[in-house]
Design a protein around this nucleic acid. Structure first.
Length: 466
RNA sequence: GGCGCGGUAGCCAAGUGGUAAGGCAGAGGUCUGCAAAACCUUUAUUCGCGGGUUCGAAUCCCGCCCGCGCCUCCA
C-alpha cells in the first residue's frame, strides 16, 4: 500500500503524494531559541527527521524549510536582562540546537530561516491582510479579526461562534476587540528592541513569521506542515487564517502533529521545569543513538513516557541490532543460497516498509526487523543460512538504518582507534595460543575499560564498542 | 464545559472483526580455557469495567471508570 499519513485537518488517514508529483514542499515549526531545547522538543524534531527520510525513501525530492524563532517575549525579556542584543542572546542557543540535532543525527532541513531576517516580508503580509479588511489597529498594535475568516477553527475542530465556557482567557489583553483575536504586530514597549516600519515601531507577533516564511520559500500551498500537538491551537490555526486570507488558497495540504514526550505522566516542558536537555542525558553517559532510538521507536502520534529504564531498553535493543550486523559481516557461511531464508528476508522487507507507509508506524516496522533477526540467528546457528543469503539480510538492515540511523556507534572522545584495538587483540590472540590466559584476560579487561567488548567465537575473536 | 489522544504481560509496545507481533527485564539452556559477551527457549486462555451485536470482538455499538494534552507561552 502507498504512503499515508493522518491529517489533523481532515482527521483521517490519507494517501500522500506531493502536489506537483515530485517534490515535497514541507515546513516545520522549529525551536524558539531562548534556552537549550529539551528532549521533548527533540521528539518532534526526530519525528520530522523520520518523515524526511521516509519521504525520500519513497522516491520524492524534498524541500524542507524549518524556522528558528529568534524574537519573542521570553527572548526579549532574557536579552534585556542580560544587556544583550537579540542576536547576541539567541546565537549561542541556535548553535547549541544545531549541534544537538547533529548528535541525534537529524538531517539538516534544506533551508533554515530566521524570523528576524524577514521583518519586511511580515510587514508586507500584514499590509495585505489590512487591505482585505482582516485587521484592526489598537494602541499601536495590529490584530487579526477572526470573525473575518469563517473557516477559523477548522484545524483544531473548534467552534468559535459561541463563548468559551470554562476556558481561560487572557485578562490583560483588554485592547482586543474579541478575546480570540490575535496579534500580528506588537507596539513598541519602552526598553525593548523594535523595528521601525510603516506599521509603526514594534515587533511581529509569533504566528505571522511562519505564514510568511513558509509561503516565501515553498509557495502559497505547501504539501506538509508539522509541529507538536500543542501548536495546533492557536499557532497553526492562526497560520491558516493569515495565509488563506492573503492568498485565498489552501495553505497546507497535510498537517502532521507529534504527540508529547511525557515525564512521570506529565508533559515535559520548560514552564513545568520537568525537562531534560540532550546535554543532561549525554553527560550521564548515554549514547545519542539510544536517545534517538527511544524517541522514534514509538509511533509519533502516541504520548511517550520518558524514563531511564526506557533509555536502557533502547540501548539494549540497539546492541541486538548491532550484534546481528556484526555476525552478518564477520561470520563465515557455507556457499550456496537458502530459498526459505530469501523468502523470510523478502517478507521482512515488505513488512518493514509497510509499517513505515502506515503513518510512520515505526513500532510495527521494528517488529518486522527483530522478527527477521531472531529467525535468521536460528538459521545461522543451524547452518541453513548460506553465503548467498547475506545480501538480502544486508538490504533489510540497510533500509532499516536509512531511517533509524542507529547502527553506527558515536565515538567517544579519547576512544581507541580501530587500529589500536586490532593491535591489542592480535597480541591477545598470541597470548591465548601460548596459553598465557592471564595476559589474555588482562588485555580483555583493559579493552573493556576503554569501552571495547571482546567476544570469542567459532570464527575467531571479534569486538565492538559499547 | 468544548475539542483531541490513550488505557494490551513486570516495563515499553504492534495489532481496529477471525482467534494476542516485537523490544527490554526475569528464568532456564547452548557455546567458551574462563566469561561480563553472543545466541536459543520461556513468560498475557487474555486486551480498564459492565452490557450488547456477531458463527466469531482487544478490534463494532451503548454506558461507565481512569490517565494525559489543548482551549494561555509551549514541540
Amino acid at each position: 500500500m502507498a504512503l499515508r499519513f493522518y491529517n489533523t485537518l481532515t482527521q483521517r488517514l490519507e494517501e500522500f503524494r506531493p502536489l506537483d508529483g515530485h517534490t515535497v514542499r514541507m515546513y516545520t515549526c522549529g525551536p524558539t531559541v531562548y534556552h537549550y531545547v529539551h528532549i521533548g522538543n527533540f521528539r518532534t524534531f526526530s519525528f520530522q527527521d523520520v518523515l524526511r527520510r521516509v519521504l525520500r525513501m519513497r522516491g520524492w525530492k524534498l524541500f524542507h524549510v524549518m524556522n528558528i524563532t529568534d524574537v519573542d517575549d521570553k527572548i526579549i525579556r532574557n536579552a534585556v536582562a542580560e544587556g544583550k542584543s537579540l542576536r547576541e542572546y539567541t546565537a549561542p542557543y541556535t548553535e547549541a540546537f544545531l549541534e544537538d540535532a547533529a548528535k541525534l543525527r537529524l538531517e539538516r532541513p534544506e533551508k533554515l530561516v530566521f524570523a528576524t531576517d524577514h521583518i519586511p516580508d511580515m510587514v508586507e503580509a500584514i499590509r495585505r491582510l489590512a487591505e482585505r479588511q482582516h485587521t484592526y489597529e489598537s494602541e499601536g498594535s495590529v490584530y487579526f479579526r477572526i470573525s473575518s475568516f469563517p473557516e477559523y477553527g477548522k484545524l483544531s475542530h473548534t467552534n468559535f461562534s459561541g463563548n468559551l465556557a470554562g476556558a481561560r482567557v487572557d485578562v490583560d489583553e483588554y485592547e482586543k476587540a474579541d478575546a480570540r483575536d490575535f496579534v500580528l504586530w506588537k507596539a513598541r514597549k519602552p526598553g525593548e528592541p523594535y523595528w521601525d516600519t510603516p506599521l509603526g515601531p514594534g515587533r511581529p507577533g509569533w504566528h505571522i513569521e511562519c505564514s510568511v516564511m513558509a509561503m516565501k520559500y515553498l509557495g502559497e500551498t505547501i504539501d506538509i506542515h508539522t509541529g507538536g500537538v500543542d501548536l495546533i491551537f492557536p499557532h497553526h490555526e492562526n497560520e491558516i487564517a493569515q495565509s488563506e486570507c492573503i492568498t485565498g488558497k489552501p495553505f497546507a495540504r497535510f498537517w502532521l502533529h507529534a504527540e508529547h514526550l511525557m515525564v512521570e505522566g506529565q508533559k515535559m516542558s520548560k514552564s513545568l521545569g520537568n525537562f531534560y536537555t540532550l546535554r543532561d542525558i549525554l553527560a550521564r553517559g548515554w549514547a545519542p543513538e539510544a536517545i534517538r532510538y527511544l524517541l522514534i521507536s514509538a509511533p509519533y502520534r502516541k504520548q511517550l513516557n520518558f524514563t531511564f529504564d526506557g533509555l536502557k531498553a533502547a540501548a539494549s535493543a540497539i546492541e541486538r541490532l548491532r550484534n546481528f550486523q556484526t555476525r552478518l559481516e564477520t561470520e563465515r557461511f557455507d556457499p550456496g543460497i537458502d530459498e526459505d531464508q530469501e523468502q523470510r528476508a523478502a517478507k521482512a522487507l515488505a513488512d518493514y516498509h509497510e509499517g513505515l507507509d502506515d503513518d510512520l508506524n515505526t513500532a510495527d516496522a521494528l517488529g518486522a526487523v527483530f522478527e527477521f533477526i531472531r529467525e535468521t540467528n536460528i538459521a545461522m546457528d543451524q547452518g541453513r543460512f548460506r553465503a548467498g543469503n547475506v545480501a538480502s539480510a544486508k538490504k533489510l538492515l540497510g533500509d532499516f538504518d536509512l531511517v533509524f540511523d542507529v547502527l553506527r556507534p558515536t565515538l567517544a572522545e579519547g576512544a581507541l582507534s580501530d587500529e589500536e584495538v586490532e593491535a591489542l587483540l592480535k597480541e591477545r590472540t598470541e597470548a591465548k595460543k601460548a596459553r598465557d590466559f592471564a595476559r589474555a584476560d588482562q588485555i580483555r579487561a583493559m579493552l573493556l575499560e576503554k569501552g571495547i567488548v571482546v567476544e570469542d567465537t567459532r570464527d575467531g575473536v571479534r569486538w565492538k564498542r559499547r
